[in-house]
Design a binder for these strands. Structure first.
Lengths: 338, 338
DNA sequence: TTGAAAGCGCTAACAC
DNA sequence: GTGTTAGCGCTTTCAA
């Protein structure tokens, strides 16, 4: 490992606002004003202070600012899986909103673990002015505890009625209904559903839609799966049992994994079996065949969530739940059964 | 938008350590000790304090702790593109290391923008006990400025000699050399390189290896491209010009994009043209054909980086650069030219 | 326009 | 084992 590091006590005291004040011959408050852009400071003095700041390389201590101001300047976001581009797209949009209010985004990944999720949420609250929980898997009671804390908070991709909590979600139910309708119109009478995480509300909504589609004569069989490519790859064979002609995946990752497995097995898509995803991540366009999936406007979703959060941080109460529409994207992975 | 929110001033003062102390009939320091698990506290008293803490729902104020302790308990990480699983894998490993030292990870995404990157790094420093810059694109001089700040910092995926800075990287040069060797042994005499971001050191290393491979009679032509699937998709046609039989992509994303485009164009891989990636992200195994690529041990890389960072936070000086080996993964996307 | 000083909530000597 | 208290570095009244 080639350690050449010598233990040097490089705990050089960082320059503080006081150092700057002294060097500039001004008071601490004046420096503070300059730093914060308060313009009631004499131009010449301000300029002098600014120079000293540069010379000394002064940077305000974030913790001290946070403590004095009573706010951290941070928005916390918790996602179940950072590897999923779905959340990445949300993050991007949210970062913009955050920046607009002079804040930064602090992201944490719970790894689909409800317990971990709860822990991280607790931690996130301590470090932020408000938090956004994306697709939380934790039990409702935990969420209720969190609400009770009185910290600005909004939940995305999950609806929780009866909690004083702003939730914002895409219309997963309608999205899955659209998938079923598409398949039914192609002539499919039965589909296999590669189910998502059990604790996922989005998964429950998809199941609800699948059940509703039975009214139109489309029956389904659910196979436990998950939310990753690997899960899709593993579950694909069991989806095939019983002469399946259409596989509906929980999300695009699962569909992509299934696609890969079918390829390995020599099962042609869509000739032998149709496959659908959900979310419309970028890869869905680049796979072969390209995935029929449901487009979810995550940018808009995240923006709405961020704005709701900002409003709460300014003192308004949580608003009613919101839902944004989704849209079916028909591509090459679906066809009429042979 | 259905705003029902009433502006309620819910700025309820959060309960502080003082409140707990009063309610428990103990001193502030005792409460602090209990909170921090110092065991020189009488068991009964400690228990009482713990109860009050639960009753009052007390949570220590992070900013105050940070200020008093002189450390934030946070490790900052800056990546050029969170959408790339490469960085996600690094993050995961780093989180583990961080947790081991009782810290959390704060992630920021520069969107491949060197200017933004510099800004974010500045910000990250103020908020963390140490930062890890992944594949920084900023000019060397900026990096030098950052070093001068004396904040614990390590750089991953880029080597910078002559800076008192710990860098840790994978052996990209050898990786690309292995790709070239593989292609050459298959009988290829010429390849087209879909080049990565100009500011990328990793890209420079790949080019260096490509040049070195000319000693073995393998010539190359570089086509400007980028680091995303979209970039690969767009650049693919121009890679084909001149009867190309082998396309070497900057990374897996680019290769995946090129694969998709070739499919659209009716160009068969690997029959008509061989394609290689770099990084070995999960998707590389699930694409069709599966990608020949270079496996980079990012978990190990991130772990080493994290440990180096921790050491620096404890006062040791930056160590010498380290490089971890990579490994060629031969899969279905490469073959002998027809 | 400027400065003095009282916090912000917590930690960590130090004294008892 | 427990409490007192002086900071940590900054913001923000309040006076001047």
């Amino acid at each position: 490992m080639g350690v050449t590091g010598v233990a040097t006590s490089n705990r050089q005291r960082r320059t503080t606002i006081g150092d700057v004040a002294r060097a500039a011959g001004a008071s601490i408050s004046t420096v503070s004003r300059v730093v914060n852009g308060v313009d009631s400071v004499d131009a010449a003095l301000a300029e002098r202070v600014r120079q000293v700041i540069v010379e000394l390389g002064y940077r305000p201590n974030a913790a001290a600012q946070g403590l004095a101001r009573g706010r951290s300047g941070t928005i916390g976001v918790l996602v179940p899986d950072l590897a999923n581009p779905y959340f990445h797209d949300m993050l991007k949009a949210l970062s913009d909103v955050a920046r607009g209010s002079g804040r930064r985004v602090l992201v944490m990944d719970s790894g689909e673990d409800p317990y971990e999720e709860r822990e991280l949420a607790d931690d996130l609250i301590r470090h932020s002015d408000g938090i956004l929980l994306c697709s939380p898997r934790m039990p409702r009671s935990d969420l209720a505890d969190l609400v009770r804390r009185g910290h600005p908070m909004v939940v995305a991709n999950r609806v929780l009625l009866g909690l004083e909590l702003h939730t914002i979600t895409a219309d997963f139910f309608r999205g899955m209904l659209a998938v079923c309708g598409h398949l039914a119109q192609l002539g499919h009478r039965e589909v296999v559903y590669l189910a998502g995480p059990e604790a996922s509300w989005a998964n429950a909504e998809r199941l609800r839609a699948l059940a509703a589609a039975e009214d139109f004569g489309l029956t389904f069989r659910a196979v436990p799966c998950g939310a990753t490519m690997e899960a899709g790859y593993e579950a694909a064979p069991s989806a095939l049992e019983g002469g399946t002609r259409a596989v509906v995946a929980y999300n695009d990752f699962v569909a992509l994994g299934a696609l890969a497995r079918f390829k390995d097995l020599g099962v042609r898509v869509p000739e032998d079996v149709s496959v659908t995803g959900f979310d419309d991540i970028e890869m869905a366009r680049y796979s072969s065949p390209a995935l029929t999936t449901v487009g979810v406007p995550r940018g808009r979703l995240a923006r709405l969530a961020g704005e709701a959060l900002l409003r709460q941080m300014q003192g308004s109460a949580p608003m009613d739940p919101e839902a944004v529409p989704v849209q079916l994207q028909v591509r090459g992975s679906t066809a009429a059964p042979a």
